[in-house]
Nucleic acid binder design. Structure first.
Length: 477
RNA sequence: GACCCCAUCGUCUAGAGGCCUAGGACAUCACCCUUUCACGGUGAUGACGCGGGUUCGAAUCCCGCUGGGGUCGCCA
């Protein structure tokens, strides 16, 4: 196969926000396509009329763009295999269903959902495999007439003959299934929409998808798809089933483990590069010891062979660490732009100045949000009401120290050279410890006991502002 | 329950029969650096689920068990 013929797809259903698991699936597909020079297709599986929502579709697209996963074909980027919304492909599915019917591979089933449900429960109770018993295969013409007259709605079922279906999976190796274990399955719902299984097979076939990279929850569905591919004369794609992402307790990741939506992490201020990086590490490794990757490195190093087959637990701490690493890899100007794009207003500060500030505070930040609040010390008047401030100011010599501090800075601070030595000798001549001396300056300036080094902080804040804030602190006495 | 997948430090992983006294990263702890926090540096704790085989030799291959996950919908 020529690499240009490699086509993968990400096929979310717009029934909710994009979450961590889906996002990783999208990332693996995208990385694979970019690595080999294939095509990345985005297809919206909106055949569930009840739950599909346009707003979710928009959100998913937005999240994918934010992650930097650009698609070669899909919504808002039509290609030759479109449309890419399944709800716009109904005629195509009907056409293929008709062909299957003509070949005698399908039949109408009039069993109601309620009937099926109660039979399922019964089977469960008996300890029998809960599968459809294919009873409507045997309907006579008379039976069918009666159902139609009674106004019963029908679904189309695909006939499954017992056999063993083998699939070759890039991460699982050869997996074999016995089709006798599942009954004739529905390919068309009574609302006139195709089921997932059918739409997937038709679309992957028509869209010439070469590799299906998806979650392991679809592994057991794969034999059905293979049966359909075969029945419709499509080439069977290659498969790669990704393990699940689990929560800290080893159960499938869900809301109760905390935030799972991509939107949440975006709002939190994580860089998309950090999420891309961390998610790529969940179920894949480069083989060397590298863990921090740029987008480009990832597209170069990714390989489908190195996908890990065991499930992975999402670890917020490590994700946070990846966040810090990515922030440090960024150019300062780029961070400034990201911050501004997020709505942080630094218009009062010159770009060069601001970038220096970012440089001094980034060591402590994993997200843009954290970066933004670290930066606040430069732009926001410090409230001196915090516990740490009160404690520092309650020292018996606080006022005296502050006066001295102000005096030294006023007289010894010239031009760019921050008077480190003068401060030090001032501290000594007062006979107080550094722990008593320096925090007073820091807290007067920022309101916080911790932060960038004073010799970095003060010059950026500027002599005038530093003195003004010291003065203000002095008024507390 | 049946079927399928998975199984190395708490977590993510390296490991494709001898290179393993099992490597790296996060987290944790200690020390160093630093008159703050952080960063950084050094070090420590910490794993091949269990039982059988195969083999001169097994984390690596096979079988069983156990455990976890998935599927068994007119959801996708």
């Amino acid at each position: 196969m020529e690499n240009a013929d490699i086509r993968v797809r990400f096929a979310p259903s717009p029934t909710g926000e994009l979450h961590l698991g889906n996002a990783r699936t999208a990332i693996f597909n995208w990385l694979f396509a970019r690595k080999v020079g294939g095509k990345f297709i985005l297809r919206i599986e909106d055949t569930d009329q009840e739950r599909s929502r346009l707003e979710y579709q928009k959100m998913i697209l937005e999240d994918l763009r934010w992650l930097g996963l650009d698609w070669d074909e899909g919504p808002e980027k039509e290609g030759t295999f479109g449309p890419y919304l399944q709800s716009e492909r109904l005629e195509i599915y009907r056409d293929y269903a008709r062909r299957l019917e003509e070949n005698g591979l399908t039949y109408l089933c009039y069993c109601s959902s309620e009937e099926l449900e109660s039979r399922r429960i019964e089977a469960q109770a008996k300890g029998v495999a809960p599968r459809y018993d294919n009873r409507c295969r045997l309907l006579t013409e008379e039976d069918k007439r009666r159902h139609v007259q009674a106004g019963h709605k029908a679904v189309i079922r695909f006939k499954v003959e017992p056999e063993r279906v083998k699939i070759q999976d890039w991460v699982r190796g050869e997996v074999e299934f016995d089709t006798a274990l599942f009954g004739d399955f529905v390919i068309f719902k009574s609302d006139g929409y195709p089921t997932f299984h059918f739409a997937v097979a038709v679309d992957d076939g028509l869209m010439k998808v070469s590799h299906v990279i998806r979650g392991e929850d679809h592994l057991s569905n794969t034999p059905r798809h293979v049966l359909l591919f075969r029945a419709m004369g499509f080439q069977i794609p290659q498969f790669a089933h990704l393990s699940m992402i689990l929560g800290s307790d080893g159960a499938r990741l869900s809301k109760r483990h905390g935030a799972t939506s991509i939107g949440f992490y975006r709002e939190e201020g994580f860089l998309p590069e950090a999420l891309l990086n961390y998610l790529a590490l969940l179920g894949w490794s480069s083989g060397d010891d590298q863990e921090i990757f740029s987008r480009e490195e990832l597209t170069q190093k990714f390989s489908i062979e190195r996908i890990v087959g065991s499930s992975a637990i999402f670890n917020p701490e490590k994700f946070h660490w990846v966040g810090t690493q990515q922030i440090r890899r960024f150019r300062l100007a780029a961070l400034r732009q990201r911050l501004e794009a997020r709505g942080n207003d630094f218009s009062k500060i010159g770009s060069d100045h601001l970038e220096k500030m970012i440089g001094f505070v980034r060591e402590r930040a994993a997200t843009l949000k954290e970066l933004g609040s670290e930066l606040e010390v430069f732009v926001k008047e410090p409230g001196l009401e915090s516990e740490e401030a009160k404690k520092a100011f309650s020292s018996s010599r606080a006022r005296e120290i502050l006066e001295a501090l102000k005096h030294v800075l006023e007289n010894e601070w010239k031009d760019e050279a921050f008077p480190v030595k003068s401060l030090s000798s001032c501290q000594k001549s007062l006979g107080v410890s550094g722990a008593e001396f320096y925090p007073l300056l820091r807290i007067s300036l920022t309101g916080h006991a911790h932060g960038p080094e004073l010799k970095d902080l003060c010059p950026l804040m500027g002599k005038g502002e530093v003195l003004r804030r010291l003065e203000k602190a002095l008024k507390k006495f």
